[in-house]
Simulated scan of single mutants.
Amino acid sequence: MYPEIKPYHTSTLKVSDLHTLYYELSGNKDGAPVIFIHGGPGGGCDEKDRSFFNPSKYKIILFDQRGAGKSTPTASLEDNTTWDLVKDIEKLREELKIDKWHVFGGSWGSTLSLAYAQSHPDRVKSLTLRGIFTLRKSELKFFYQDGASHLFPEAWDEYLALIPEAERHDMILAYHAQLNSVDDATRIKAAKAWSKWEMATSKLYVDPSYINRAESDEFANAFARIENHYFINDGFMRDGQLLEKQEIDRIRHIPCIVVQGRYDVVCPATTAYALKKVWPELELHIVPDAGHSAREIGIAKLLVEATDKFANLE
């Protein structure tokens, strides 16, 4: 990854009566524009996210989605859907007077990248995607009900502990009740447990510092509440919509590189493979010794190689 840099411009964009987004620009003011689409939903951006791009070649645009990171109001679920976010990305493009840009996203960021590209295929120069997630019911069931639990039984036990046994048949629904409790203590405790489950399973080698992110009240509250809100609503789209042939046909002409960890249990490789089957033109790299995190060495290396490859794309 490239050395860490500071933004040369930070600002906000009011996208509705309620929501205001934080965004920043770094790298080369006259470089190829690239939009970084963070995960979660609700995860927000990190200063290290700028380092996937050559700062001498790219105008790097980071923004926090509705309710996430430095965007306000924090953790808000109102007017917060996939299609609101797609509209926000387009508003940001117009605000920055960009004709076409490169799009980079991992995990939920890959979901939103695909949704945006399928909505505005004429505005996307390339797609660099990681840890493909299309928010199908089968994907949610694997991570939040029956699948990853078989590989991380200790972490799963902690995740289960907050939920009464009678409610454990639908963990997303059970957590929904606690994450929307009027009692602050109940809500924050559930948010930390929800977030910790994801942080504990995101790397091939469990990283205690990564798990510690879940201890932040503010981060956990936004991350858990917004994720759960999207998942309880099936991503506000048809099951498997992003993989439908007519949707892929809209973006088939866009150069696309996908980087996928073989042992990603948050967004298992079966989804990246399903995308490759319906879109054989894309370039799929499966990293044999990696899990879910973009920070894992093999994944980060291939993501940087992808952005280097696209930097000079006309």
Rank of each mutant, 00 (worst) to 15 (best):
M199V: 04
S76T: 13
F142H: 11
E281Q: 13
F143T: 10
V287H: 04
G291A: 11
I98M: 09
E90D: 11
M1T: 10
Y175T: 07
K91F: 03
K91N: 09
A290K: 02
V287S: 14
T270C: 07
F63E: 04
N212Y: 08
S113G: 15
D183G: 04
T271R: 02
N221A: 13
A177K: 15
F219E: 07
D289C: 11
V287W: 03
E165H: 10
K277I: 04
V258K: 00
V15C: 03
D249E: 15
G240E: 09
G44F: 01
I163T: 14
K70G: 05
A290P: 05
I286M: 12
H150Y: 12
K70E: 10
D157I: 08
A224W: 02
I251W: 05
R187G: 04
N221T: 15
S16Y: 02
R225K: 15
E314L: 14
L151A: 06
S138K: 07
S11R: 03
K91M: 15
L179Y: 12
E218G: 03
F53K: 07
S216N: 14
A222C: 10
Q178W: 03
E247H: 08
L162A: 07
H19T: 03
A117H: 01
P7F: 01
I254K: 06
Y2D: 01
L243E: 07
F104I: 04
R130Y: 02
W156A: 06
E314P: 10
L62W: 05
R187L: 07
E305V: 09
W83E: 12
A214C: 08
T72H: 02
W194M: 08
E47W: 02
K309H: 10
G42T: 09
S126N: 02
Y22H: 14
P208G: 15
R93I: 13
E198V: 10
H150D: 15
G31S: 03
G43K: 03
S56Q: 14
H285L: 12
L284D: 00
R213T: 10
E4N: 13
E218F: 11
I257R: 01
S202Y: 03
D17I: 05
G147R: 09
L127Q: 00
E296N: 06
F104C: 05
T134Y: 01
R66V: 13
N212I: 05
